[in-house]
Write a protein that binds this DNA or RNA. Structure first.
Lengths: 335, 335
DNA sequence: CTGTTAGCGCGTTCAT
DNA sequence: ATGAACGCGCTAACAG
């Protein structure tokens, strides 16, 4: 019946109401320069016919779609899921729709993807941790308005980030305070912005604590990579392992358990992000609590300001706190 | 420079190429009735100017947007995340975009949400486990083409589902085979389609196995609900608990551990869905492996058939297999 | 084979 | 306060 393909148009309303289509348009858009009685009649007809303006035609003439694009590298990653979740709900509350684009970690095709989605939307929120900085800068200029999540954008766009460096520093202080002097750092994928922040923090920590030794082990960002490097971690002789994120930590935890190595008695393990499952590992994971959903909401707030506001919003930086659970304990060597 | 708001239009290309705009249109759309040399010249100009057709204008005239809407109840739920993930990538491979709408479990507003998103897209994939069946039927008629996930739709739309009933039956057989005779079923939210399937299976199992007793405990769909009913599960005296999904099982596992109750020695626990974390709980969770990403891919395949194909696609039913891990073991009473 | 014309459905001047 | 006419950018039917 009310098939969306054969929907009632503004002219139908105009005809059955006996007015011109511009009057209907005015009424539907709340233009006050319409006789109240007439307006009421038009509204009645519109309601009866179940009319509402075609968003596509509206978008074309108004130049805005009430939709934004969100580009993320991997929809299977809990952190990006949380960002998307927070963003999506916040945007919906303001009457905006969300077009989602999963770049599938294809850094090379990210630019085209962003440009393509941008053309069907009013702006784009970009999570592209591994895109080279120069490419990012030129891309941002061409797709403005844009908001960048979790990486610097040197004024090319407002930024919404969590401070991965400071949280990493707290994690290091935490295990250092527990007597650990030899740490293993399970790095993520090369080239990521938050990875660089962690790395810088680690270097700074070594400078601050001359007694600290850090062995970097190249891992990845998923369960498997954490499990895969377990033997390397053991061989390194570190008493604490700092994983790139919670997934890597969980993989490591699992592999250590399989080898009969006790956590935290034999080795301490930390994660990063505090995904919902981090509290349910064995032992529960000590990690940095990154407020990802809030990051999403903030990203929307910035985008909204760009879209509807006059001024460019401030970039925001959320400071994650660390959540100490049971995967970290005193160093076995200090006892 | 190449700002998306001041983009090059088809008329620009036509002018600088010295041809009419319809020729440009033909070339861009691969219409073969154009002189090859002319076509080449137009392509060159288009490339030089960085032209590509405005998708909005195209959508308006063609009546299709190359975009579909996906409506899900909760973007924070791993199962829906997996469906969205599979669907999104599959659609992208076919050049389609995905508009995502999180209904935030607001069953009442689902209808308007679906209708609204449908108008900006070519079709909608609907995950609405709790919408009343009559509402669903009329809604589907009004928003066709539509594909429904994980619930029957009585020919109002093609359906893509996992067989929650058969998987639940296997789970019951599994624990029954382990000697369990008194089970606790932690039901999810009332009114869900897959919940009804589980419930029906349980009734059937009781008929098949007269020695089987099942206590239904009203829980929910998240961690907290599993933890919340732990005492109820214990008080019921069941030797095995079948949780509505993995999240509920994980919450239960956690609460049982806190009470010093051993799994599976004192009580066996099963989940449902086999989310990525189910393999990392303590003990690893016995569960029904629902291929959610595949469900998403199938949903796209059905939608694509609806959009581009001539015939209405068959509804599909995936049969989940159960994955036995370590959260289930022999009944303590049978030893 | 190419150009001219007419819409797609709507918002918005510009007259009245 | 209202209606007629124009244009958003593009595709398609119609001439030539």
């Amino acid at each position: 019946m009310t098939n969306p393909t054969s929907r009632v148009r503004i002219t139908d309303v105009a005809q059955t109401a006996g007015v011109s289509l511009s009057t209907v348009s005015r009424v539907m858009n709340g233009n006050p320069t319409v006789d109240p009685d007439l307006a009421e009649r038009v509204r009645a007809v519109a309601a009866e016919l179940g009319y509402s303006a075609n968003p596509l035609a509206r978008s074309l003439v108004l130049g805005r779609t009430q939709t934004i694009a969100v580009v993320i590298p991997d929809l299977a990653n809990p952190t990006f899921q949380a960002i998307l979740h927070g963003l999506s709900r916040a945007a919906a509350e303001d009457g905006y729709h969300v077009l989602i684009a999963d770049s599938a970690e294809q850094v090379g095709e990210e630019i085209d993807l962003v440009s393509a989605t941008r053309r069907r939307t009013d702006g784009v929120v970009l999570c592209a941790p591994r895109m080279p900085a120069e490419q990012l800068a030129t891309l941002l200029a061409s797709v403005a308005p844009a908001v960048v999540v979790n990486r610097p954008a040197q004024d090319a766009a407002p930024t919404v980030s969590a401070d991965y460096g400071s949280a990493m520093a707290e994690l290091v202080e935490h295990v250092h305070g527990l007597g650990h002097r030899h740490l293993a750092y399970l790095s993520g994928v090369p080239g990521s912005a938050s990875g660089a922040a962690r790395r810088a923090t680690l270097d700074a920590a070594c400078a601050t604590h001359p007694d600290l030794q850090i062995t970097e082990i190249s891992a990845g960002v998923g369960f498997d990579s954490g499990a895969r490097v377990a033997d390397e971690v053991i061989a390194a002789g570190a008493t604490a392992a700092l994983a790139f994120n919670d997934l890597v930590a969980m993989g490591l935890l699992s592999a250590l358990a399989a080898r009969g190595i006790r956590v935290p008695d034999d080795i301490s393990v930390t994660g990063f992000d505090d995904i919902p499952f981090a509290a349910y590992t064995t032992p529960p994971l000590t990690t940095a609590t990154v407020p990802s959903a809030q990051l999403g909401r903030d990203a929307w707030a910035a985008m909204r300001a760009l879209l509807e506001g006059a001024s460019v919003p401030e970039s925001t930086l959320l400071i994650p706190e660390i959540t100490v659970r049971e995967s970290t304990g005193p160093s076995p060597k200090s006892r």
